[in-house]
Design a protein around this nucleic acid. Structure first.
Lengths: 235, 235
DNA sequence: CGTGCTACTAATCAAAAGATAAGTAAGCTT
DNA sequence: AAGCTTACTTATCTTTTGATTAGTAGCACG
């Protein structure tokens, strides 16, 4: 009947002759996770205004297929968000923070190293920032989680290290939290520089994290004193 | 001729009867700066995918009028960017950084206070982040400027403070720069938390900056020791 | 006070982009 | 090997959105 259909059919035959199978048929679960993974990468790159047609093109599928798996674009975006809130914090790392057999310096370094590895990725940093700018409530929620599970133990451990009263005796102050926030920012910003500003970092994450923890504990002048003493003179 | 025109005319008459003047006629220069200011605010809020119609609505003008002042949306965006690169650094503040009659602590605090005041605004922080995510080359350029005009003096002054060799004798190391970067991040992140994550800050910018400089110089444990000693016990 | 310049608006276009409907074919089942 | 289910595609609708065109009216100047 419709000549349009005939044309399409002919085109498909041509394609098949000249290349790989035109249509690949996956199990729904596989296709869905493929779409979600692609969407995470895609939206991390271009932001949530990225177009469904372009996403489909990158996935090698047609755009309407997205709508078989997600009722709307915003549903897909929701899914991408939820993918990120699957606890990005690792209970094992957190437990180690409070293990007083190790020096605090080492505990902090190890914790933030693991944290950096899990969190300072292209996808995570960018989607986190996009979501903040868009004003979804995600960031304050994540910050609250962070405060409870990371900042509170850190402040508590610093108190213990200094022989100061425990939180039960003298309540933790916001000022103390703020200092941990500054450490956190210094580390997180490595990811921002790399994945958002698109800059090269002079150090690998590992060195950078260790140096920041040292500066946090000792103050930058003390750290630099050592550092410059060790440097070859004249170069 | 055209009855559509007649209808429009009638409508306008109605409006005029019931309210303020329908059309306000500004001098081109005034209108232009009004548009730019509105665009800065608008794009800072919703991002550069924000629509020209919505921008016009907020400005109280019609959408085509934008096109009398800017040939395209991207030209307007360019203008918004350029508005921001009008040196956000203040030569006077920078000069003070190197004034060795004042203690380093005070110089750093004063500098970053002024910096925070100029830079940690809703518009600046958000547009800066949007531009980074979009991948315009603006951020690395700004970072380079910052390095030249701020980080280098800071590192140099720390060297001097510690009686260490000047940059001419022993070249400044990337590790030293990184520490200043961490301070910078700690302060900039105040703006990110407030204007991007939409969170309340427990401290005003002034207190926060001073505390971060103190931690930078002395290390957090020393700062906290003082802090908790001063706190009323049991509260 | 009327006339001309031009700042501004109304109407409209064309392309882009989310969403849907109709039809096709991969591959499991018997 | 035929048939059936359903994963997938083609074609298309509708709304949104950047941009243009034709016309309107504020106001400076005579």
């Amino acid at each position: 009947m419709s000549s349009r259909r005939d044309i399409a059919k002919a085109k498909r035959r041509r394609n098949r002759k000249s290349g790989e199978p035109v249509r690949q048929r996956l199990k729904p679960a596989d296709r869905e996770s493929m779409i979600v993974a692609g969407a995470v990468r895609f939206f991390a790159e271009v932001g949530f205004e990225g177009q469904t047609r372009e996403l489909a093109r990158r996935l090698g599928i047609t755009q309407p297929l997205l709508y078989r798996y997600f009722p709307s674009k915003s549903a897909l975006i929701e899914r991408v968000y939820s993918e990120f809130f699957v606890t990005r914090l690792d209970p094992h790392s957190e437990a180690e923070l409070g293990d007083r057999r190790l020096p605090l310096r080492e505990r902090l370094t190890r914790f933030y190293l693991a944290y950096a590895q899990r969190t300072l990725t292209y996808e995570w940093v960018r989607i986190y920032m996009f979501s903040g700018l868009k004003g979804v409530g995600l960031n304050p929620r994540y910050q609250a989680l962070l405060r409870r599970r990371v900042f509170t133990p850190v402040v508590t451990e610093i108190r213990a290290e200094l022989g100061l009263p425990a939180p039960e005796a003298v309540k933790l102050t916001e000022a103390e939290f703020e200092h941990v926030y500054a450490l956190h920012a210094g580390i997180f910003y490595l990811g921002v520089r790399k994945w958002i500003y698109g800059m090269d970092l002079p150090e690998d994450f590992e060195t950078a994290v260790a140096n920041r923890v040292a500066a946090f504990l000792d103050g930058v002048p003390n750290v630099i004193r050592e550092l410059v003493r060790a440097a070859p003179a004249g170069d």
